[in-house]
Amino acid sequence: MDESWALAQMTRIEVVIGGEDVPLITELLSEVGATGFTVVSNVSGLGHSGYHQGRLLFNDRNALSLITVVLPAERVRPLLDGLRSLLAHRSGVLLVSDTWVSRPEYFQ
């Protein structure tokens, strides 16, 4: 990547969590001012709490979901605080990475 690509750096946060907690996560996201996010429902995986098979046809809430949100780096810290306290007593996965986006104003 170089300057000519005209990309801005942001932080990407991905959370894998039970479908029931998605409304809480969206509440946290709107609290820190995230303007958008993506949810993929019915994902499967293996973790410390056992295997979660995702493909539940008639149940959105008891399967895992993956939530992806992109934020400017300055806004990440408060969100991390909240997510950490959530994952202290819920099974789930939190991934934070750097990412570059094409339209930074989209994510402000």
């Binding site: 509440e27 609290e31 810290r77 408060p78 605080d81 909240g82």
Partner: peptide, 21 residues
């Protein structure tokens, strides 16, 4: 973290606590 961040962090922690409660 500056104060707004502190405040935001307190709020997000609170939201999780409300959910737990």
């Amino acid at each position: 973290m500056n104060t707004t961040d502190e405040l935001l962090a307190a709020r997000t922690r609170l939201l999780v606590q409300v959910d737990e409660a």
